[in-house]
Design a protein around this nucleic acid. Structure first.
Lengths: 152, 152
DNA sequence: GGCAAAACTTACTACTTAGTAAGTTTTTTG
DNA sequence: CAAAAAACTTACTAAGTAGTAAGTTTTGCC
C-alpha cells in the first residue's frame, strides 16, 4: 500500500490521526453501550475493559492514548481535541463501573471513583508500554494486583 | 544553537538520545546513594522520589521513560539498552524503599514490593503524561491516593 | 458482461531532517 | 596576553516525508 492510497481516504496526516482516534472513540462508545445493556457484574465489566489492554500486550502493541501523549504539546488542535474526548470517554466508562461496584459491595476503595479510575487507567496504559520494554510478566502482575485491590 | 553544535558533542542522533538517557541513569544513581546515606524514613524517601515527578508536572514536561516508551520498537539498540537500564535502576530504588517501609511498619501492602513498585511507577509516569492533557489536578489526586494507599 | 464509482499506483514536487566539512568565536591555561 | 583547545556557525548534501496530479485497476451492481 502506497502513501497516496492513504491520502485518498484522509486528506492529511493530521486528518489520518484524528480519524484513528475517532475510530477508538466509536469503539469505546460501543463498549459502553454493550456494558450498559449487559446484566454483568461490575467485576465482569472491569475485566472486559482490562481485556482490551491485555490484547494490546499480546500483539506487542500499545494504547493509542499512550502513543499520542508523549507528543501532545506539538500535536495539531484537531488531534488534541479527539485525544481529550477519548480520555474523558474512557474515564467515564471506568468511573461508572467502579461506582456500580462500590454501591453493590463488589469493590472496596477509599478514594473517589474518579481517582480510582485514574489509578487503574494509568496502571494499564503505562503497564502496556512497560510490557514491550521489560516484559509481559510485569503487565501480568499489575493486572492481578489491580483486581485484588478492587476486591478489597 | 544550531544542529552542528549538537553534532560536536554527540556524533549522531542515536548517540544524543543515549547520552540523555545516560544522564538520567547518573541522576538516579546519585539519588539512590543520597537516599541510602540519609537517615530518612521510607515515607520521606518515597516523597523525595515522587517530588521528581511533581517537578516534571510543574514545568509541563514528561518522564523520559514515557517519551521513549511509545517509540521503543523502532529505537536503535544502544537506546533500548539505556532505557532498560534506567527502568531497572528506578524500579530497584523504589522497590528497596518499599521493602524498608514494609519491614518497619511504615507501609502496608499485600503484593510483593516489586509489584507495588510497578503500580507506583505506572501511576506516576502515566500521571505526568495525563497532567499535560487533562490537567494537573488529575496528577495531584493520583499522588495523594498513592501515598494514602501505602500508609494503609 | 459492462460500466461507473471506489480504491488504488506511478511519478513527481516542496519541504524537512540528519549529518558533514571548513571556517570562526569563545574559553581555558601556562 | 598569547596560543591552543573547546565550542561553536555557516553552508552545504543526501535521504526521507507529506502531499499532489494524472492515470490504472478493482469492486459492486443493474
Amino acid at each position: 500500500m502506497k502513501n497516496a492510497a492513504v491520502h485518498y481516504h484522509f486528506k492529511s496526516k493530521e486528518d489520518l490521526l484524528a480519524g484513528i482516534l475517532e475510530a477508538y472513540v466509536q469503539e469505546y462508545q460501543m463498549m459502553d453501550k454493550q456494558l450498559q445493556a449487559s446484566g454483568w457484574t461490575a467485576l465482569q465489566k472491569i475485566e472486559k475493559f482490562i481485556e482490551r489492554y491485555s490484547y494490546l500486550v499480546a500483539c506487542n502493541s500499545i494504547c493509542i492514548i499512550g502513543s499520542v501523549a508523549s507528543d501532545y504539546n506539538t500535536l495539531p488542535e484537531s488531534v488534541k481535541e479527539k485525544t481529550t474526548q477519548l480520555i474523558e470517554l474512557v474515564m467515564r466508562l471506568v468511573e461508572k463501573t467502579l461506582q456500580q461496584g462500590k454501591k453493590n459491595g463488589e469493590f472496596h476503595f477509599e478514594e473517589t471513583a474518579r481517582t480510582r479510575a485514574l489509578l487503574i487507567m494509568t496502571n494499564l496504559a503505562a503497564g502496556v508500554q512497560l510490557a514491550r520494554i521489560s516484559g509481559k510478566k510485569d503487565y501480568a502482575s499489575i493486572k492481578v494486583a489491580l483486581l485484588k485491590q478492587l476486591k478489597g
